[in-house]
Write a protein that binds this DNA or RNA. Structure first.
Lengths: 221, 221
DNA sequence: TAGTGATTACAACGGTCATTGTAATTTTCG
DNA sequence: CGAAAATTACAATGACCGTTGTAATCACTA
């Protein structure tokens, strides 16, 4: 009766977890490369080095697998981005230089996790055919979590007197940071569909940081 | 020998053009609704009220049809957006009010042509599997053409003394307009995947226009 | 080491779909 | 009208794919 794909509670056995993660990893690659519809179960199983039957035993069906992959990948990327924020704000002294360094890595996230963002492009294209709660859940554990972390760091920098940011404008500042840096690059590259020359990339990022500092930088800096 | 799907030169006969456009229209709807892979040729033929064989006679194969649909749709949307620009800049007097009106319609373009932008989301998701020249051609007759028109109008408004825009900063101003208005809304709505509350939409647009005027508005206005 | 559960190989089913050939039919143009 | 071209209905082909059942094998745990 109880399908094992829906609510896994106890992967008691030892090897199961490894199999499971191998499948998730392989599926992330294949889904990202081929898209949901073109990606065949057999191809995923082969990529993961696993029998296709095992895959069904773990995730029920293709849609369940995709959901699991999306959430797993989102958590991984969010964690990475949050670590990146920690790292940069830890040594945050000179707004201009430090924010530029952050921006370069921040925006480069799309190239650091290409499979994940290919996945995101898939769900955006198929959004109207996906359950709304899947989309909301993705937003919650993905972009929104990242932004919340960013907001916290910006606020802290504001309290430290390094940026003109307080509770009043923190939301807007967070949104503007994302828009001026990642948003600018993504708009210009058609969400990463077209390649962007490095010089253009750098100019956009630099411009975005300047824009941000023009709004939220302290006069004396 | 000569496939008819590649380089159509002379649709001599009368009815052919109507059939062709019926197919393009139907294909645009079905491709936009179901995506490239899920959209079946039979479904498109039915939607267009045409035999599937006729469809093959016109466009060669599915990929050729998709290409034709994309270009056709891009031209249509570009034309519409350019007309929109004409209309607004024709009566351009008060930067604040007029730019806000323009922005609302400009950004609303994604909802005025839903099928087209669904198509765009498809090609963005499948970009790595599409020939690069198709992507470049789309950019040329689509977004880039629209931006060129916008640039012209902004420059004219600059020459008229209504905006602080000249040859020097026209490119950047054009990019910023797109980023602050449409870019802001698209970033927030995950490229239109998630629904956006009207109040949020309006706030984003208003904020974008203010941002733009802060950079390119004349002091006295 | 014995037993339990996970994994595997294998085969099969049912369905969908792009594409093509063909002969009949309709439309268009001179 | 009459020829040429376009369209249609129809059937068929070949391929791919999600999913399931089954029996044998393997890995882990007790």
């Amino acid at each position: 009766m109880a399908k094992q794909g829906e609510t896994e509670q106890k992967p008691l056995r030892k090897g199961m977890l490894e199999k499971r993660q191998a499948i998730l990893k392989g599926a992330r690659a294949v889904f990202g490369r081929d898209g949901y519809t073109r990606a065949s179960i057999d191809a995923i199983a082969a990529e993961a080095g696993v029998s296709s039957r095992t895959l069904y035993n773990h995730f029920g069906d293709k849609e369940g697998l995709f959901r699991a992959v999306l959430m797993d990948s989102s958590v991984a990327v969010t964690t990475a981005q949050q670590a990146l924020l920690e790292r940069h704000f830890h040594k945050f002294r000179d707004p201009e230089a430090d924010l530029y360094d952050l921006a370069v890595e921040w925006v480069g996230g799309t190239e650091t996790h290409p499979e994940h963002f290919a996945l995101v492009r898939q769900i955006i294209a198929e959004a109207s055919r996906l359950p709304l709660d899947v989309l909301r859940e993705w937003q919650r554990i993905g972009p929104k979590a990242t932004r919340a972390a960013l907001r916290g760091h910006l606020l802290e920098a504001g309290r430290a007197g390094l940026l003109a940011i307080d509770e009043e404008n923190a939301d807007r500042a967070t949104r503007h940071w994302a828009l001026f840096t990642a948003g600018a690059v993504q708009t210009e590259s058609a969400q990463g569909a077209l390649p962007l020359e490095p010089e253009v990339f750098e100019r956009l990022v630099r411009e975005g940081v300047e824009l941000f500092l023009g709004l939220y930088g302290k006069p004396q800096s």
